[in-house]
């Protein structure tokens, strides 16, 4: 039997979609019982959302002022204190989970399984390596807890029709003071979230400037799509870092991804491997993006974008 503890990702008010995807992954383990752990300052709202996720047996909630911001050094010891009795501890392969879960794994004396894309057995998993150019099947030791991050693009969120019990806990772990939150600057906008959007319009270096990137935003807004970018566009300063799609940015799986002026480096392609339909628009007919695109159009993006916007 697999007893799984999933660390919920949230911003203090809303449960992140990544948590429901971790539950979907845990469901693929044989004979599972799934608990969710919410670490928060005031977590009852988040715990309520977590309790609705299907397949969740119970939600465990630790409220503490120290948990206001997700600092790995502060959260990890609280998770480790609860780890006994669980065969698996899962978190999402988002920057939250990537920061936190290895710290948990090390405190438990195990290596982590990073970026699970498929469950083959209770201790056997597939994961991408070399920017997704190779798929590796790994087997974790059967007598040790499995600490893992889940590649969220590989899973569809479980539904939210459950009403699991919420159990409030008090943590007595001594928490470190050596790491302190200072601030968060977020390019928050009314646009859909890149990680969970079903439509994404993405721009690359060929846009040429931050000003020209307005074309991408305008098309995305017309379609109700999220905006993404290649590493080159982010490095050039056209858009902020949180829009980067690829090996070291976000791994996404929308139904439709329109790549405009993106040549398609392997590091970018690994971020869109699970996209439903890829549309590529590029003036270079030999661009590697056309090798993976479902629909390709060769031409000048400065002519095509306004035309497309008007045609939709």
């Amino acid at each position: 039997m697999s007893k799984v503890l999933i660390i919920a990702e949230h911003d203090g008010a809303t449960l992140n979609e990544s948590t429901a995807k971790c539950v979907a992954c845990a469901n693929d383990l044989p004979d599972t019982e799934i608990d969710l752990l919410v670490l928060a300052k005031d977590g009852s709202g988040v715990a309520e959302q977590a309790a609705r996720l299907d397949s969740v047996a119970k939600v465990r909630l630790i409220e503490n002022d120290a948990n206001e911001h997700a600092l790995a050094a502060v959260l990890a010891p609280q998770i480790v204190a609860l780890a006994g009795g669980y065969s698996h501890l899962f978190g999402p392969s988002t920057t939250f989970g990537k920061d936190l879960m290895p710290r948990v794994a090390a405190l438990l004396g195990v290596n982590q399984v990073s970026d699970i894309m498929s469950v083959q057995g209770s201790h056997t998993f597939k994961r991408p390596i070399y920017a997704g150019n190779v798929i590796l099947t790994v087997e974790a030791p059967a007598d040790l807890p499995v600490v893992a991050t889940i590649r969220t693009a590989s899973y569809k969120s479980v539904s939210a029709t459950n009403n699991a019990p919420v159990e409030s806990l008090t943590d007595h772990t001594e928490l470190p003071q050596h790491t302190r939150f200072v601030g968060l600057s977020s390019g928050s906008s009314d646009r859909p979230d890149l990680q969970s959007a079903s439509l994404v319009v993405s721009g690359g270096r060929a846009l040429g400037s931050a000003e020209n990137f307005a074309l991408i935003y305008a098309l995305a807004d017309k379609m109700g799509a999220a905006v993404g970018a290649s590493r080159a566009a982010v490095d050039a300063g056209y858009v902020p870092n949180e829009l980067q799609v690829g090996q070291t940015g976000k791994i996404i799986a929308p139904d439709l991804y329109i790549a405009i002026g993106i040549s398609g480096a392997i590091q970018h392609l690994t971020g869109i491997k699970d996209v439903g339909t890829i549309v590529a628009i590029n003036k270079d007919e030999d661009a590697p993006i056309f090798e993976v695109a479902d629909i390709g159009l060769v031409g000048d993006l400065f002519k095509i974008i306004p035309e497309l916007k008007d045609a939709l």
Binding site: G109, V110, N111, V113, T124, P128, G132, N133, V134, I135, L136, T137, V138, E139, A140, P141, L144, K273, I278, V279, I281, F290, E291, V292, A293, D294, I295, G296, L297, V298, G299, I304, E307, L308, A311, L312
Partner: peptide, 29 residues
């Protein structure tokens, strides 16, 4: 030394099927 995960199998990723090329925006839409 810690217990490393056993590396059971290496395989190439599933290739995406090559798609179609369209000639203009009307074809794309």
């Amino acid at each position: 030394t810690a217990t490393a995960h056993a590396e059971v199998a290496f395989e190439p990723p599933e290739e995406r099927q090559k798609g179609i090329m369209v000639q203009d925006v009307a074809g794309l839409v």
